[in-house]
Write a protein that binds this DNA or RNA. Structure first.
Lengths: 229, 229
DNA sequence: AATTGTGAACCTCTTCACAGCT
DNA sequence: AGCTGTGAAGAGGTTCACAATT
């Protein structure tokens, strides 16, 4: 009887995006349970704290292994460590910011990124007026040096916080420099070659979705729960 | 033959979240097409610009009416106006910010919100040190006055940019004050009563999803396209 | 008695494919 | 000929329900 399945190097069925995002939620739920000195936790409780069903939680975890004990639940510390392995949070990631405007600056100061091991090592901007500015101990540097600097710092994740019109060009350059994953805050759709991962943080879309909900008040689906991403 | 179906006050099948978010993308695509003086646009082109399929675009629109002309495509200005009606963007919305930290401040300055008619009218914070600070012409005020101020300004949308632990309490107060929709930047799951809409802008989840993609390099699904929300 | 892990049922969203206009 | 609008098929994600285990 396998005591515990190894979580890393998953190669079974393709994991949905939704599952990955929920794992990230479970991870934080477990962090707080551990802080409260809880040793075990049930799928039921993880679900309740995230506005989901217990079956959903168990199914998500089951893609990666059998981490619980029937009749007892999950060991909080173990499950936390396992999810950390699955998501690749057992290590740190060097991150590069492009766009030293309001949003970009706020992101560099955003404590949660550091706490979870995402470390800004490089800040780039095309505007000469910004070069040399210090943001959280980092100098803003010329975006044109992107290739050289990204390679030198071995950066794999780029955060793009430039105005829409420039975003695609910035992304193309980052990809050329060897960046493999991009968190895009520009309110435009960007296209990338196969093998490059993009996540969009499009605040305009989200607030417009709220506008829709308020407008089409026909909305008869108001279930007391935890709402969309 | 109905020349054009009225887009507003939709009450057919429930519209998926994904559809609403895509409409928001089409809306911006059309804005830029119009700026480029294009008069008509095909579902094929809207799709290409957003990394989607043409069928998806047509299906999304079909939930709200028949806006195109067979053989010709869509009139850019008409479709833009129709989507604006559907999403409720033909008007302005007063918005309240809670949390005058880095992120909150950046959001108030975020031009796209204003451009799309989302106007910050109120900035609240619990920290007395922040009271009286000016952010883009608005005074930061005591969060305890939330009830009175939200009602006075007739605000329906709240943007929450406070640290995780305080978020649920803030949301409860906002709901009590009459807020109907919340854009939540705190990296925690918040629960709301039926009839209140929440969208989460959880940057930690998004960057952790990138970490997962980079970690489970088994990722054999790299289709050249426009990636997840 | 409690709670997990999971195949199967169910439901929702996307894509196909083609009739119907222009 | 070109392109939309849409029913039907297909794919994917969620929930059910129960055997397995502690």
């Amino acid at each position: 009887m396998p005591r515990q399945t190894s979580p890393t190097h998953h190669d079974g069925p393709k994991i949905s995006d939704a599952t990955v995002k929920r794992l990230s939620k479970y991870y934080r739920t477990l962090q707080s349970s551990i802080a409260q000195e809880k040793t075990t936790i049930s799928s039921e409780e993880i679900a309740r704290l995230n506005g989901l069903t217990a079956a959903q939680v168990r199914k998500d975890l089951s893609f990666f292994g059998a981490f619980g004990r029937r009749g007892l639940g999950y060991n909080a510390v173990d499950l936390h460590r396992n999810i950390s392995q699955i998501l690749g949070l057992h290590r740190t990631w060097n991150v590069c910011l492009v766009g030293a405007g309001n949003i970009g600056t706020a992101l560099v100061h955003f404590r949660q990124f550091q706490e979870q091991g995402f470390l800004f090592k490089l800040i780039l901007d095309s505007d000469p007026a910004k070069w040399g500015m210090k943001i959280a101990d980092l100098d803003v540097q010329d975006f044109e040096q992107c290739d050289e600097l990204v390679k030198r710092e071995k950066i794999k994740i780029g955060v793009v916080a430039v105005p829409g019109p420039g975003a695609q060009r910035v992304v193309d350059r980052l990809v050329q420099a060897g960046i493999k994953a991009i968190l895009n805050f520009a309110p435009v759709t960007i296209l990338v070659p196969p093998g490059i991962y993009v996540r969009n943080e499009n605040m305009v879309i989200e607030i417009e979705a709220l506008s829709y909900a308020l407008t089409s008040k026909s909305g008869h689906k108001p279930r007391s729960s935890a709402a969309a991403e």
